[in-house]
């Protein structure tokens, strides 16, 4: 099976501080993969490395590679990566608050030049999110969090990606809205778009993805099919809040990991 994205032994550091160590992740073509991790695990660094904006924070790839279609992506400019079909839903939505919803969506197609195709994609996005057409001419900054996240996903889809990277889709949203968004991700995934969901909310991420990785202090500590991980005691203790003795279990695992 060919892979949409293959991260191989990636290490990243911000100056002397290492952020990722020997991380290997593979997203199969049309697959739905999630990366779990708590705060400071290196999730955001991972996304920055994939989308090529590491330089903004003066980060450096020290070893390893990110390959896509046999091409190393670590040296590419962000706009080349986007043109190559990787779109990102950034953490915290990052909409353009003073542009209307439609302008925000059209900004997502900044890497494309075919106006007719962009209009078609816009109609598709409006069909996918029936809540958005009535809000079309509203300023994005005035929308609710859930609507903003929909615009952010729609904006990423405007680039017609073959790989969608979602950074913390559930951040600051009500559980019901998060569920709806993940159902939509499922639908997008069924259309053949590979999804890489970077999530703190392990429960929902494991429900929807087929394969998952757990990132802890810059290293992959666990990986496996989502169904198996869901049953895994460690994962339950770490990310889902396990049974009564979860606190001790958590401490034990943290000790294990940090050793």
């Amino acid at each position: 099976m060919s892979s949409s994205l293959k991260i191989d032994g990636l290490s990243v550091s911000y100056g002397p501080i290492p952020a990722l160590r020997n991380v290997s992740i593979e997203v199969p073509e049309g697959g739905f993969v999630s990366v779990l991790g708590s705060n400071g695990a290196g999730k955001t660094t991972l996304v920055r490395t994939i989308t090529g904006v590491l330089y903004l924070q003066k980060g450096k790839v020290t070893s390893g590679s990110i390959t896509r279609d046999g091409q190393d992506m670590t040296k590419l400019k962000t706009r080349k990566i986007v043109t190559g079909g990787v779109a990102q839903v950034p953490e915290g939505r990052m909409l353009f608050p003073q542009l209307t919803v439609e302008e925000n969506l059209r900004c997502g197609a900044a890497s494309r030049r075919d106006l007719a195709g962009i209009n078609d994609t816009l109609s598709e996005v409006f069909d996918l999110f029936p809540q958005l057409p009535p809000l079309q001419n509203q300023l994005a900054g005035l929308l609710s969090g859930g609507e903003q996240q929909m615009v952010a996903v729609g904006r990423a889809l405007m680039a017609k990606p073959s790989l969608l990277v979602c950074d913390e889709l559930s951040l600051g949203l009500a559980p019901l809205i998060v569920r709806d968004l993940f159902l939509l991700l499922d639908r997008i995934n069924k259309e053949g778009v590979a999804v890489l969901a970077i999530e703190q909310n392990a429960r929902i991420a494991l429900q929807h993805s087929t394969y998952a990785y757990a990132l802890e202090v810059g290293e992959i500590v666990l990986e496996g099919p989502s169904d198996e991980l869901r049953e895994n005691q460690e994962v339950q203790d770490l990310y889902m809040g396990g049974g009564g003795d979860s606190r001790e279990a958590y401490a034990a695992i943290r000790r294990e990991v940090n050793r």
Partner: peptide
Amino acid sequence: AAVRDRDISATLLGI
């Protein structure tokens, strides 16, 4: 306008 509102976000969209 994207550059004005959030230039990092604009970079991420391939601008």
